[in-house]
Design a binder for these strands. Structure first.
Lengths: 155, 155
DNA sequence: TTGCTCCTCACGTCACGTGAGGTGGC
DNA sequence: TTGCTCCTCACGTCACGTGAGGTGGC
């Protein structure tokens, strides 16, 4: 039972990116195909598909550039390797180092997420205030407003 | 009592952007200085300072490109003009149009903010899960972890 | 008059988009 | 064999960064 392989177009479609983007990630050292066909076209596995999604999250949600993402993935890769099996890294201190690095990384990410959530909440309050003021203005001046998605949410 | 004027460097520092960025916004038609000195250097007022902050919010928080931001600011400008005074726009139907457009805009923004909040919440849960798994692994293998900002938050 | 800030080109960069021209695989 | 997908250049674009060389204002 060999693992299912995907062509670059399939991976791109799943992630909602272009094939050019996946080739660019490869060029920048963020994503290597699991293998190649005889003719030379790229073949990806589930691991790579998940990796693309992770890259997009770190880019779109957190706003990191590809170099920062490369460093983050490096730490996560070493952690995954450590968790999968104890092979490789020999010394106890080396092992502890990797776990500490990953713990610190996730702690930092968590802090940045919290601050993003705070900024978004402020922005949401601002926009909702403006929505209300629009509605007030419309009521005062006898303007009928269209139904918003807002209304659909509360139905 | 004339309004306080700011030089480009002051505005840039307040907004946390470069002077190049402000000149680029001008080039793209997003931000005009309130005036110029005799020698030709740009002078901005409070309105422009606020506008830069708004552009940055729409860029950094919502991820819009400058063309979308230009459209959003256009709607907001017309709405502000309408609210300040009833001068200008003559017909009632025109007035109603502007308010409806703004209401729809804010409704859309609100929806996009909500979906961003949902994605961020998912991502936060994922990262917090990883933090916990790191802590569990460390406990099992007698690895002492450093204090995180996490700890500082709960103190 | 001395600095710091401003000015306008203009080329560089990052993360891709978009053809051009050719080969691969069900 | 016919399409659709893949391949590698290579130039274009967006939102700026970064000097180069020169003028402005407290």
């Amino acid at each position: 039972m060999t693992e299912r392989r995907y062509r670059i177009g399939e991976v791109a479609a799943q992630a909602g990116v272009s094939t050019r983007t996946l080739r660019y990630y490869e060029e920048r050292g963020l994503l290597d195909p699991a293998g190649h066909s005889v003719g030379g076209s790229r073949r990806y596995g589930e691991v790579e598909v998940a990796r693309v999604a992770r890259i997009r999250d770190l880019q779109a949600i957190m706003g990191f550039d590809l170099e920062q993402i490369c460093r983050i993935l490096g730490i996560e890769d070493r952690l995954a390797q450590l968790k999968d099996e104890f092979q490789g890294d020999p010394t106890e201190s080396r092992r502890a180092d990797i776990v500490r690095q990953a713990y610190e990384l996730y702690g930092q990410l968590d802090q940045q997420i919290r601050s993003k959530q705070a900024v978004l909440a402020d922005f949401a309050a601002e926009i909702e205030g403006k929505l209300e003021r629009c509605a007030d203005f419309a009521a005062e001046h006898d303007i009928t407003l269209p139904a918003t998605a807002q209304a659909a949410t509360s139905s």
